[in-house]
Nucleic acid binder design. Structure first.
Lengths: 108, 108
DNA sequence: TAATTTAGCAACCGTATAGTTGCATATTAA
DNA sequence: TTAATATGCAACTATACGGTTGCTAAATTA
């Protein structure tokens, strides 16, 4: 399908999924699909789809218990986003916008 | 349409757009649409669309000069992503996955 | 002035995405 | 054992998205 970092970016690109992920992070414990659905104005099946996307991106993992499936946030996965950002970090202090400017400034 | 942070996340969620953005960041100077297109196996119109998305996300700005439109990277915009990440950062050191765990660990 | 280059716009195509409804199934409670 | 609950799966809809082709217009060069 697509590489991991793309899955990750696509997962957090959807506002509803960011909300669901956030709800899981601030939850006192793992939440079942139904419990999550109750917090959102959306059908349970809609939530299930989002959870699947988050799971495939590595942002959520699931522990089954009887008929229930408890969803946990895995914020560690966001470190991948952080890694990607790292390269561009050097361009947002100073007034550097491109590597050209960056190298030119080192020449002088 | 959609809020800024969503536009930003969606812009970088596409691998081709990340490549174009990267090319602009490491470029020695601003690149015209045609110059960018030559670096990618895609039609100029395809690139134009991606540039527009990047522009609307604030990651690229354009300076027109005669018939040419020179594209510049604006990596500063990625600070917004960094801000979003900040909240979740505290959950990826230690073994905290959720705020529940986080608060429980403070209780003890 | 004629030819070339840079680019925008519009229409179109195929696929992915967000979300729905309906139904089947397994687990738990009465 | 019957009823209720939690969930998955499949089909469907509408819209967004990545990319293309074709055409037009403005700026530059010969």
């Amino acid at each position: 399908m697509q590489d991991n970092i793309t899955k990750l970016f696509k997962a957090i690109a959807d506002p509803t999924r960011r909300d669901i992920f956030h709800a899981l992070v601030i939850a006192a414990s793992a939440l079942s699909i139904t419990q999550i659905s109750n917090q959102f104005e959306m059908t349970r099946q809609g939530v299930t789809k989002h959870i699947k996307t988050l799971e495939e991106a590595g942002l959520v993992y699931i522990e089954s218990q009887g008929r229930e499936r408890f969803c946990n946030a895995n914020p560690k996965e966001l470190q991948e986003v952080n890694k990607w950002l790292k390269f561009y970090e050097k361009f947002w202090d100073n007034t550097l916008n491109s590597l050209g400017t960056y190298l030119n400034s080192k020449d002088t």
